[in-house]
Each structure stands twice: as C-alpha cells, then as structure tokens.
Computed example of a mutant assay.
Amino acid sequence: MTSITTGFVRTDLLPPQPAPRENASILGWVRANLLATPKDALLTVLAVALLLWTVPGMLNWLFFDAVWTGADRTACLTGAQGGVQPNGWTGACWAFVGERFEQFMFGRYPIDERWRPMLVAALFSLLLIPILIPKVPYKGWNALALFVVFPILAFFILHGGFFVFQEVETPLWGGLMVTLILSFVGIAVSLPVGILLALGRRSQMPVIRTLCVVFIEVIRGVPLITVLFMANVMLPLFLPTGWTIDNFLRALIGVALFASAYMAEVVRGGLQAIPKGQYEGADSLGLSYWQKTRLIIMPQALKLVIPGIVNTFIGLFKDTSLVSIIGMFDLLGIVQLNFTDINWITPVTPSTGLIFAGFVFWLFCFGMSRYSAFMERHLDTGHK
C-alpha cells in the first residue's frame, strides 16, 4: 500500500507556468476588464462613442485650430468680424494668454522689478523641495528656514523700500503671485493654529475649551467671503483714529483664520481616532502633557488625517480667488480683468482665459493630491 501511494506523490514542485496566452495579451486584458459581461460591454461601447464624439472637437478647438501667435484681437477674429481668420473659424485664442502671460503671473507689478518675484519663487523652490523629500536630512532647520525666515525675507524683497529695492505697494501685486502667497501663508499658519485649537477644544479647562469652541464654530458658520468682507470693511472701524492695516495683510489674516478653524476640526478627528490605550501608555511612562502630545499622540493623529489636511489645503488654494471682492486680483481675477481689454475682446477670449486659469489651478491641486497619496504610502507602516 505504501509503494502504491508514493508512486502518485511528487517530491518536488512543478516549475511556474507562463500566464495563459489570452490573458497576457492586450486582447485578453480588454476581454477581462472591458467586455467581461454584457453590461460591461455596453458601458464600454457607450464610453468609446462619447469619447469619439467629444475628444476630436475638443482637440481641434484647443490645439489644431487654435491661434498661438498674434499682437492683438484681429488674430482671433474672422474676416466678417474684422480679423484674419476664415469665416466660420472657431478655436482657442492662446495668443491672448501668451501676450498677457506675465501679467497673469505678476499682476501690475512693475516690469523692471519682476525679477524680484522670480527670485522669491526660486528661493521658495530651493527650500520646499528638500522638505518634501523624506530622505533629505535636517528637516527641522529646513522647516525653520521655510516657514519663519523665508516669509520675512520674501516680504522685504517683494515690498522693497530699502537698499536697492524700489518700494512696490501691495495694490500692485496680483496674478498667480498673490494666489501662491495667500495659499502659502494660509497653509503655514492654519496647520499649527489648527492643532492648538483642536487641543484647546479637547482641553479639561473650561475657559480654554469655550474660547476654542466659540472661535471654531463662529468662523466655520460663515463663508469665507463674509470673513474677507469683515476684515476689509469692518475691521478698520474698530481701530484707533489714524491707524490702518494694509488690505493685503487683512486678506492674509482672514484666509489664515478661516483655514485654521477648518483645520482644527480635521485634527480633532484624528485625535479622537487614537485609542485610549495610547494616552494611558504615555501616562504610565511619566510623560508630561506636551511630551505625550508631541511624541506619542500628535504624530499618529496627523498620519491618520493626511487626506483631510490636504483636502483643506486644496480648498484653501481655490478659495483664494474670493479676494477679488476686496479689490485684489489673484490669478482668476487678473484673467477676468483682461477680458475687458479692448485690444483682446473676441468671442473666444473669455473661454480661453478661463481654461488657462482652470488648468493652472488643477495643476497645483493635482500636485498636492499626488504628494498626499505618496505620503500616505510612505507613512503606512501598519500593514507592511
């Protein structure tokens, strides 16, 4: 019986076999993912039909039939409209974007001084890139330079008024420069202030807890446009006679406070997700409140709410366009302002400008989203 049994039992494993030919090919992938069931096949056919119906026209309008060069509006008008394009032509007017590109970036900042925003952008990139790469050392010094030293240095370079720097008032600032400044200051301020507000809301001291709750609920209960309006119109009424605050500084304060209230609730959600045993374990080690929070609780809480934090940052970046109500022109505002330029009034100018502004906003928001996904994978040590 033993000899018969051993005759049917292998003592070594079979070598791995190649994947079936029908699954390893492109046709096999299409069959498995797009045509697996009649429902999948129907949805695939409808999706392909929709793409064939819309994509060629979009590509023609955006690229193939678009006007890329031109000195004025006649480049984007048909012959019947007084331009050089054939009658019936339709396409994007990228010549308008190219002609106004520097204004979209810097607003009304003096042309001879635009090297200063470029210098600030270069310094910002040099400080930001190392802090985004996990393996680069000296993160503490890097963060100190980026979030403390750099804003002060950037203000003196951009505003000027000393040494060889000509003074440039903030009403002349605009375009993407204003969008990035508002976003950076809002992000840099909202995260630490939001953490303090979240800790204050969970505090055992009634006065601290009440103040944090009132601040968070009041700010979250009104839209950002109301906060900006209050900062621009109502705040000067409470200042002593002769005192004034720059409009741009008011916008920075309003945006930062608004984002801090939302950030506080995101961080509080992370704090509530930490098991009670983590607090008890830290207490058993004899750690103080701030040691426990800094070394044990907060690193775990922030890792859990990375998507919410980045979502708040993305919302803040897009909401900066609301500063146009207080007379400041960010990227979207300066693009819309140029629609009234008589040198570039055409039927396709508004749509082209809005598509350009939308693409720039999407580019930055998509970059933040992808970096968020990267950090989630990098910090996800619980399942490795």
Rank of each mutant, 00 (worst) to 15 (best):
E280G: 05
L331Y: 05
A273N: 12
E113A: 14
N343G: 09
S25P: 05
T5C: 04
I26P: 01
L35Q: 03
T210M: 13
V267I: 15
E99P: 02
P307K: 02
A301S: 09
D65I: 07
L42C: 02
A121W: 06
Q166K: 08
A19W: 03
G353F: 07
K276Y: 06
V136Y: 06
E169T: 14
L59G: 10
A92Y: 02
A95C: 09
W362G: 04
F64V: 13
L191Y: 07
A188C: 05
F366Q: 07
D330N: 09
L42I: 13
D40A: 14
A231D: 00
V310E: 09
P130L: 12
I219F: 14
M234D: 03
L295M: 11
A92N: 14
A231Q: 04
I208E: 00
N33F: 06
T37W: 11
T74R: 13
R209L: 05
V67T: 13
V67R: 14
S25E: 15
T312Y: 02
I253L: 11
I296W: 03
I208G: 01
I208R: 12
Q103R: 08
E99N: 11
A32M: 06
W243S: 14
T170I: 00
T340P: 00
S288G: 15
F359M: 15
L43T: 08
V30L: 15
V178M: 05
F313W: 12
V214T: 09
L158E: 10
P236N: 08
S260E: 02
C93V: 09
M105F: 01
Q103Y: 01
L363Y: 08
G242D: 10
V214L: 12
G200D: 00
L252D: 09
F248S: 02
L180F: 11
G254L: 10
G277C: 07
I334D: 06
T54H: 08
F361T: 05
T352H: 06
R31F: 09
T69L: 12
L331H: 10
S203I: 03
Q81L: 15
T352M: 04
S260R: 03
T6F: 14
F258T: 10
D341R: 03
A373Y: 05
H383Q: 13
L285P: 01
D319A: 15
A301V: 07
M105K: 00
G254S: 10
G269L: 10
L43K: 10
V189A: 13
F329A: 09
L14A: 15
S190G: 00
P130F: 14
L337P: 01
S3D: 09
I345Y: 04
R202H: 08
